[in-house]
Write a protein that binds this DNA or RNA. Structure first.
Lengths: 189, 189, 189, 189
DNA sequence: ATATAATCGAGACGGTACGTCCCGTCTTGCA
DNA sequence: TGCAAGACGGGACGTACCGTCTCGATTATAT
């Protein structure tokens, strides 16, 4: 049965090659063929692990952002959100941003993959924001529907700017967004 | 100097074929090869007009949405915005949504094209919203920076949902977004 | 290192398709695209083996004529040559003739390829004739320069007629040519 | 009726462009598109005069070699032939040789055109040689069939060498060929 | 003078083939 | 069984020419 075990060094090489290519040459250069070549790995070895380029990228991003989901919890929800967004926005300037954009590209025209991205990547970060906003509304309750809407107000602008104008995702922008949304959360009916 | 003039029927055929393919088979199936074939046109004829698939799609969208930029102007900015967004969101369920998603896919990894999309497609719609929000703030002034931010709050969620969950762009969502943002505009310092 | 070995069936299919196309539809119809299609093979698979249409044709001819280089050796050099030429001329009426003409067409304007043809195709047949003519001159010696010249007198007319008037390459023509040249070889100073 | 007359300067430009391209860049670069471009002429203007690239080249050659058919007539047929061949071979080193090779390429796979070349280009030169050989046989008669064969012995080697090894067409080669064939003509039964 | 008619440059047009890239699958031999 | 190597059918890329066509601007002859 069991045969030769998978070489963990190969996993690393694939993910590293993916990140490098997406960052250096952009999303278009990141073909599976190119990733395998740069990783010094055969194509088959990539396909044994992933079914599509999207999954490689998703995994590369996961590997990169593992555990990096900060959940600040001070007395000030506004400051918590600002801190979360500042960190998140900053990350979008580098590899993470490039990988995120690549994921969107892969999602378009592939509904299954889009769903996977939503569940594995988007939802967890929405939860983090929802937790903060729930604190902002306390002691009153924050309903699910309203929470979803407020979270959209946070992440909508981020992805929008990430896709069309990444440099605008500054700390100042994070501050402003955090203030606007926490205020709206606090004041809601 | 003059040469044989371009056949306008060919332009139409290309754009129609593009819209059909993007809608029916999705973004991935919409190759230039396929567009030319369906339009009953040679590839060269497409390349004579457009340098990339992205440009074809952008033009198809422009043709589709020509002049369709409603600028409601009633006594209520909130209702104006709600109306604008309701119409816009509704449009995203059909061809327009498919084309918009396709444009995003093409923009990723092609900064030049991304800039073109921003200027020809995104900016005009931002202006329409900015105009409404300026009325909402009246008689006080709405600064450029703040206006830009508020417009992000409007369009950010739209693109975010368009990419990851198009069906959620309902009339109710439009209403809620219009209310939240006009209120914020009105109440701003 | 090793990789999947080339499928010999594919080689055959390519060569067979090439011969069929050149014979049936003529040299002009024999595109690499067409060869690949008829062989049921991808274009890449052809390009992996050959750099140009010329090389495919040369190989097809080599495969066809493999080992078919008769070297008759009776008491009569004249009869030897006549026999060789009769067989050679007869072959030019079929696929071999079509392939030979195609090779010339490919050679024109491609000096490298012309040289390859000369070495792989032309020279071996010249040697066969030279051997016979050396016997015709015996016991005196046949010098290199003179031999080359006499061989030209044999093959020059053949190619000339092959290109401009193939049906004239009859057995009678072969006989006459063999007689004239062996006589000249025998009588030379 | 009559309309604007053809511009003779255009004819010249086309022929000159053809000769230049065939000589400089080789036969492959001599597309009708390229010829028209270099001549500063529209494609239609070329097609109004010629039905194919072959015809352009044939005409270019005709223009180049107009009246250049020497018919030396001294007391010595051998010297006549040597002189004719020396001049002919010399010409093959330059544009004429390139054009001749191009004509062969065009003839292959186009029987109609091959016939035209034979009649307009090949036959006249055969006649010139036949005339000389008839003198060499005098006072006996030189039959048609035998004459054709002897002419093949002259031109066969020339085209053979022109196609595969043009530099070998030297004056010495011309002399040797003239001697061999006139002797054969004189001595024939 | 003013049609009428052909020529010219320019360049669009439907095609066909080029040679390249990448897809996802497969088949080797070695570890 | 993993892995590097690389063959394989397939599909699209963007380019070059093919031969035809349609334009506006010339330039002749024939009213």
């Amino acid at each position: 049965m069991s045969g030769r075990p998978r070489d963990p060094g190969v996993d690393d090489a694939i993910l590293r090659a993916t990140m490098e290519l997406v960052e250096e040459k952009g999303y278009r250069a990141a073909s599976i063929e190119g990733i395998a070549a740069r990783a010094g790995v055969s194509k088959q070895t990539v396909y044994r692990r992933y079914r599509s380029k999207g999954e490689v990228i998703l995994d590369a991003l996961a590997a990169y952002a593992a555990g990096n989901l900060p959940a600040p919890d001070t007395a000030s929800p506004r400051r918590d959100l600002a801190q979360l967004l500042t960190a998140t926005f900053a990350a979008q300037q580098g590899i993470r941003g490039a990988l995120n954009r690549a994921l969107v590209a892969e999602s378009i025209g592939d509904d299954d993959f889009a769903r996977t991205v939503w569940e594995r990547l988007i939802l967890p970060r929405r939860e983090a924001v929802r937790t903060i906003l729930t604190r902002a509304r306390a002691p009153r309750e924050l309903g699910d529907a309203e929470a979803d809407f407020l979270v959209d107000l946070v992440y909508g602008p981020m992805w929008y700017r990430l896709l069309f104008d990444p440099p605008s995702l500054t700390a100042a922008y994070a501050e402003r967004l955090a203030e606007a949304v926490t205020e709206m959360a606090a004041g809601g009916s």
